[in-house]
Amino acid sequence: MSGEGEWVAVCGIDRIDPEGGVAALVHGEAVAVIRTYDDVVYALSNYDPFSHASVLARGIVGTRTLDGDEVPFVASPMHKQAFDLRTGQCLDDEAVSVPTYEVRVSEGQVLIGGRREAT
């Protein structure tokens, strides 16, 4: 449920390193905004449900091959659990996932929308 009005511009895409992340404050929530090698930007909750700390934006970004599919992920810097950047699903524990957010890049600006419904 993300209306057009809820989009928040957080930074220019240049502020995010390829395969790096930044934390942003969106509607009072800490959001990890992550850019992959092919310049796709993803947003998920910055809160690592395993360590109970707000840190996911500081993790290492990479890919993991699952069923022949190259899944982009960020690994928590705390204890290394990996989260699928597209869905927030934890790749090491199927019972765990983190919320994701709508993202748009427009004229070099990264805009974060509302929380996506859990799929």
């Binding site: 511009a9 934390a23 942003a24 404050l25 800490a30 809160y47 700390a53 707000s54």
Partner: peptide, 16 residues
Amino acid sequence: RFVSFVNAPDVPDANI
């Protein structure tokens, strides 16, 4: 890179 939030560098992360 050493900011709490890229869009709110002066706000400390209240999760900590």
